[in-house]
Design a protein around this nucleic acid. Structure first.
Lengths: 205, 205
DNA sequence: GCTCCGATATATCGGGCCGATAGGTTCTGT
DNA sequence: ACAGAACCTATCGGCCCGATATATCGGAGC
């Protein structure tokens, strides 16, 4: 799921790992403090898949060596040339490829529905179309309703149980109800929404 | 952290893995659906540490072959004897040892403070004393206050940003405030509490 | 009696994510 | 000039999860 977040950020701008982490923190905020121990392996995975490309910035200022977006054999050669120029301080700037953009859309429509995954998808909702958004929102709501039901049944079944467990479950019930109401507002906004959406596919003007 | 939950459950009754999972689901409910892929390795870990002991129930009724609590070489021999009696349907019933009880208290006072860990500790608050409880509750509150602050700053800094990210952060702010208030109530209850607490240390009457 | 089936029961494997750690570079204050 | 802070990439061990394998048990239906 971290791959979704990386691609979502890289679709806005080319960045290197360290910057990426900061951006992720800003956007996802409390929803997962992505650690380097996840970030770098994920970037390698994405590079292997061809979803991102890396070049090394020369540090001659902010001229990030423009990338044409998709890579040819030339880019690979370029990369290995610079890999020879070993010696840290060559920041590896990552850019998203067309494959990566396709992958991003694919990951966005994945229905996995835990707190984390849902939050991540929501954070990058701008990259998918309204039907997908509605599907995800409604699915999430259904999941929470189910959970609410289950917790409530467990709550009524055992009265006079451990007070801490009880407190935990009552609070969970309240939180879940609040979340469901929130989702309801988001769904309504989505259905009534004016169509000020960015193009879901194919950025790169 | 799953070890905490296992020990917390086993302190109430001797159980085998499958039952354990069901109990965990009841007590922790929505807070982590412990999977077998975590449960069995964790049980092995705990067994290696001497925190739990396993015997095999003969299925001749509820006579669970009483365990003396801590194990000698005899227990190991017993175990391997039964391991030779291969053919599943010999349920491995686990029981907590004195070492396990010490470990439980130790895990309970660990200050790790993410959603998961805090929730698990709260679910087993009955096994620790009031000072520890208050320490954990207040630490959690402090963490959430910090997070609230951070999210709020991020929220005011960037107006007119992506509406979905904005929605995410606003909702997080609300949820966090709600959680803080809830913690406040728990703290108050704890401070005013009549002393109807079970003995924190040394079960085994 | 027989078979099929769902629940009970234990266990492992690959892979993702995290915290800790390590090692190097550039910037900044003094 | 120097120390310390921030920047930057990377790996390692360990936990946790979902998928999968395997085997038994109790009952429903024929």
């Amino acid at each position: 799921m971290i791959e979704l977040a990386i691609l979502g950020i890289l679709k806005e701008a080319d960045l290197h790992g360290y910057e990426l982490k900061k951006h992720l923190r800003k956007v996802l905020g409390p929803l997962s403090n992505v650690s380097f121990g996840s970030l770098y392996p994920a970037l390698n995975r994405l590079e292997r898949q061809g979803a991102v490309t890396a070049v090394v910035a020369d540090d001659a200022g902010p001229s990030t060596m423009p990338m044409t977006g998709s890579l040819t054999g030339e880019a690979a050669a370029f990369r290995s040339r610079l890999r020879a120029t070993r010696g840290p301080r060559n920041k590896k700037v990552y850019g998203i490829t067309r494959i990566g953009e396709r992958r991003l859309v694919e990951l966005l429509s994945d229905p996995t529905d835990d707190e984390r995954s849902f939050g991540m998808k929501l954070a990058f909702f701008r990259w998918c179309d309204r039907p997908t958004r509605l599907r995800l929102l409604e699915r999430r709501r259904a999941t929470l309703l189910e959970r609410l039901d289950e917790t409530r049944r467990a709550l009524t079944a055992r009265e006079g149980d451990d007070p801490y467990v009880q407190a935990l479950m009552e609070h969970d019930t309240e939180s879940t109800m609040s979340d469901i109401a929130w989702l309801g507002r988001l769904i309504a906004r989505e259905q009534a929404g004016d169509d000020r959406t960015r193009e879901p596919t194919g950025g790169h003007p």
